[in-house]
């Protein structure tokens, strides 16, 4: 059986007066079985949201380079033309819950109308208006909103309610895959927990989720697999246990070290230096200027995909036997 989602060599660059912004720079990953969640973790500005946009082919006007393949259930959807992609893929198979849910609802449209709009607008749907309304009201109930929400305008909703409406909206076509871009970052903790529980339920029902966040702890709560993203590229990808238990990339270790812990004497560490400017990226491994264990090869050669001892894929020369050998020899001398 083919995986739910497969992304190969995805690129999305933007043109900018100060140089090309390499927001997504050769990203490949896969989301295997239905009902699993992959976490996309990284600092802000590392290209996570751009990756989501690239997958949905939401390209801004200043796009300089866009290529790569996106496969859904064994179909290469990136080969479809723009109109076909819009009609058959967007929202029907892949739905997005965006980062700024606060402003993602049309301010002059009532919730009910907004929810059902994509279905009403699609020509192929022969769904009865009553059936559609029943289904949509069911979704509202599903995400824990009172039925009165149907007739409200966005300005009458709280932040948490808006986020739930967004999730309900994303489910209207029962898509295979839900991309969630920082779905909880603007919410307070209790609302955040409710949303996370909702996501877990949805996942249990067979929905696949790509969970984009800067919060590795939150991601680990729901995700079966994690991909750590740094400066437009994946640094390390593997099961949550592998990544959290035996992080293979120095960046992942740093990221984990920066999480404050209860019952721990050690203070959380911060990662020295700033996330790189996506317009002026360092040569070789993009993390090397901030790395605490850099090798001589790091600034020179872009790391290739390697297998870490604990089994996950990692893009770091530390895990290359030959390079390590050379490095050790150099250190010996």
């Amino acid at each position: 059986m083919s995986p739910v989602l497969q992304v190969r060599d995805l690129y999305l660059h933007y043109a900018d007066p100060a140089g090309t912004v390499r927001a997504v720079d050769g990203v490949s990953f896969e989301l295997g079985e239905p009902g699993t969640a992959l976490g996309f973790v990284g600092e802000s500005g590392c290209g996570k949201s751009s990756a989501a946009n690239a997958m949905l082919r939401m390209l801004p006007g200043n796009t300089a380079r866009y290529d790569g393949e996106v496969w859904l259930d064994g179909v290469c959807v990136s080969a479809l033309d723009a109109e076909e992609f819009r009609r058959s893929v967007r929202w029907r198979q892949m739905a997005l819950v965006p980062q700024g849910a606060q402003n993602s609802l049309n301010p002059v449209m009532r919730v009910g109308k907004w929810l059902t709009e994509p279905v009403r607008q699609s020509r192929s749907a022969d769904i009865e208006p009553d059936a559609l309304e029943r289904q949509a009201r069911g979704l509202l109930e599903r995400v824990g909103l009172p039925s009165g929400t149907w007739n409200l305008y966005p300005h009458e909703l709280s932040g948490g309610m808006k986020q739930r409406v967004m999730i309900a909206g994303a489910l209207i076509f029962s898509p295979r895959l839900l991309i969630m871009d920082e779905p909880t970052s603007a919410l307070d903790v209790s609302v955040q927990a409710q949303i996370m529980n909702l996501l877990k339920d949805l996942k249990a029902e067979g929905l696949s989720i790509l969970f984009i966040t800067h919060d590795i702890a939150l991601a680990s709560d729901i995700c079966d697999r994690l991909a750590v993203v740094y400066a437009g590229r994946i640094a390390e990808i593997g099961s949550s246990e592998q990544i959290l238990g035996q992080p293979a990339h120095p960046y992942t270790r740093r990221l984990l070290g920066s999480i404050p812990r209860l019952h721990d004497e050690a203070l959380p560490e911060f990662i020295p230096g700033a996330p790189p400017d996506l317009r002026k990226l360092p040569s070789g491994c993009r993390f090397h200027p901030r790395c605490d264990v850099p090798l001589t090869v790091c600034p020179e050669r872009v790391p290739v995909r390697l297998k870490a001892e604990s089994g996950q894929d990692v893009w770091c020369w530390l895990h290359d036997r030959t390079v390590n050998q050379v490095a050790l020899e150099i250190q010996d001398e």
Partner: peptide, 14 residues
């Protein structure tokens, strides 16, 4: 430029 316009596109609207 508003988010909800980008969102309308993401929702597969023409």
């Amino acid at each position: 430029q508003e988010d909800f316009v980008g969102m309308a596109r993401a929702r597969g609207l023409s």
